[in-house]
């Protein structure tokens, strides 16, 4: 009887000890879990901040990129529109120029062009003058007047006509030097400056 109760006491004691041990283990495991959770929360928070920050940066870059590209595309479209308008303006101007070939001022211009061209090719009077078919008669008249006044001597108007708006092209007698003083070449020379003026007008800049 007494040995049984001693055994029971011992069993009870072992059970108590085990229980206490298990409770302590559970407590420490619980505590450890809480600690882990806490530190994970910190890490998670840091990771979340990192991801959000990276995404924010990426979004900012993307935004900048999209806005930048859109602005550039709009600017390029504006450039093309202006260029079309500038080209139209030039076409109109060329038509007007072609129509003004009969005016007196054009004769004066031709005279100036011939003198300027002869001077450009070194003042040599032995030159061949080329022009378009419509101007041929007027050019011959101007050359004849210049010859009469002694300003030009051995100039000859070519029978080979050139396809230009107006003006003249002068060649040295041996054909090695050419001075292009046609209206077309003058327009080409001044085009960059005129383009700027037209573009400013289109943009409303004074």
């Amino acid at each position: 009887m007494s040995s049984n109760s001693a055994l029971e006491r011992m069993i009870g004691k072992v059970l108590d000890q085990k229980e206490a041990e298990l409770i302590s283990q559970i407590d420490s495991a619980y505590q450890e879990s809480l600690d882990n959770l806490e530190s994970s929360r910190g890490k998670l928070e840091a990771e979340r901040t990192r991801i959000v920050e990276a995404a924010r940066k990426q979004a900012e870059n993307l935004k900048r990129q999209i806005i930048g590209s859109a602005r550039l595309a709009a600017r390029n479209q504006e450039l093309l529109t202006i260029e079309n308008a500038v080209n139209k303006a030039f076409e109109e101007a060329k038509k007007k120029l072609q129509a003004s070939n009969s005016q007196d001022s054009y004769k004066e211009l031709l005279k100036h062009m011939i003198e300027e061209s002869i001077s450009a090719v070194g003042g040599s009077n032995a030159v061949i003058i080329e022009c378009n078919k419509n101007d041929a008669e007027l050019v011959r008249k101007v050359v004849s007047e210049l010859q009469n006044s002694g300003k030009v001597q051995q100039a000859r108007v070519s029978d080979q006509y050139i396809d230009v708006l107006g003006g003249i092209r002068i060649k040295s007698a041996d054909g090695t030097m050419t001075y292009d003083n046609t209206l077309d070449s003058r327009i080409e020379r001044l085009k960059p400056l005129i383009r700027k003026n037209i573009a400013q007008m289109l943009r409303g800049v004074e």
């Binding site: 100036h112 300027e116 450009a120 090719v121 054909g175 090695t176 030097m177 050419t178 001075y179 292009d180 003083n181 070449s185 003058r186 020379r189 001044l190």
Partner: peptide, 25 residues
């Protein structure tokens, strides 16, 4: 009148040498 003097065109090429072109007269 505004001067539009713009240079002369020459056709007397004397020599072509590598990237160079020599023009006479």
């Amino acid at each position: 009148m505004t001067t539009t003097s713009y240079g002369i065109e020459y056709t007397k090429v004397a020599e072509l040498k590598g990237p160079l072109m020599i023009i006479d007269g």
